[in-house]
Amino acid sequence: MKRVLPLYVKIVLLGLLVVFTQCKQKKTASGKKKMAVVVSTLNNPWFVFLAETAAARATALGYDAKIFDSQNNTATEGDHFENIIVAGFDAILFNSTDANGSVANVLKAKAAGIPVFCMDREINATNAATSQILSDSYSGAVAIGMSFTQQLNKKGNYVELLGLVGDNNTWARSKGFHSVTDNYPGLKMVARQSADFDRNKAMEVMESILQAHPDIDAVFCGNDGMAMGAYQALVAAGKASKVKVYGFDGAEDVITAIKENKVAGTGMQFPKVMAETAAKFADEYIKGRRNFPQKIPVAVELVTPKNINEYIAYGKK
């Protein structure tokens, strides 16, 4: 058996190599300044929207923008930062994988003189990023907890679906929610399970929970994907009209579902506002501005059928 590649494969590979190197030369030759968008994951529409909005705004401001996907892995993120530093980008619009783990990566960029602007997720350091434009998950979940309590008249059985149990946002949302609901002894959490922020998993988990607890009154889900999955399980069980479903994010499907009175509420985050502010700040930094607020909290707003007309997917009308 021959182990050597056939000649035509070699030629194709060589050709590809030439094409790629030429592309690279072209970019540096164009003389445009460059912004990197580093996002925790592209496996979730919410983050895709965040990254695309940031890149689009950077392009509109006259920069070359490139998106890097960290695949929820802080080590991959570190590799991206090293490549970005070597490639000589002028600013980084950054959505971190981990509040503590990502600090070292940001400090690397800072040492290389590249400003980092955090979007949505906080990093636990005040001297690393130039500015952090953050989604206030905890307070948003508190608002949901209050609406939830009121809708249920302070009593009833409910289920909580958690996101990935190793994720900071999972617990910020869960804790915010429980900081309200745990004060009411009439509200009883009969089951708490993880569905990994995943629509299909949420549907399966909810189907099983409904077997054990057929008479629940509400479900609180850590994101909108899980809320849709839980809702579908309730529809299949013929209980959709009796059980109130809450989500978190403000994604398209849930906004539509709230309009149709299928889902009771969600926490609207503003990825567009965060991404565009970050791009604007980066532009101003490159043009000379240096005094930026370390943290800008972007409130998460409660969306229910009452105020749904003010909102569209991922933002306000």
Binding site: N43, N44, P45, D198, R199, N200, M203, G225, M228, G229, Q232, D253
Partner: peptide, 15 residues
């Protein structure tokens, strides 16, 4: 089947 069950094709389905 997954797509039909969820009434939605998820980009991260099947991971």
């Amino acid at each position: 089947m997954v797509t039909s069950r969820l009434d939605s094709a998820q980009p991260n389905a099947g991971t």
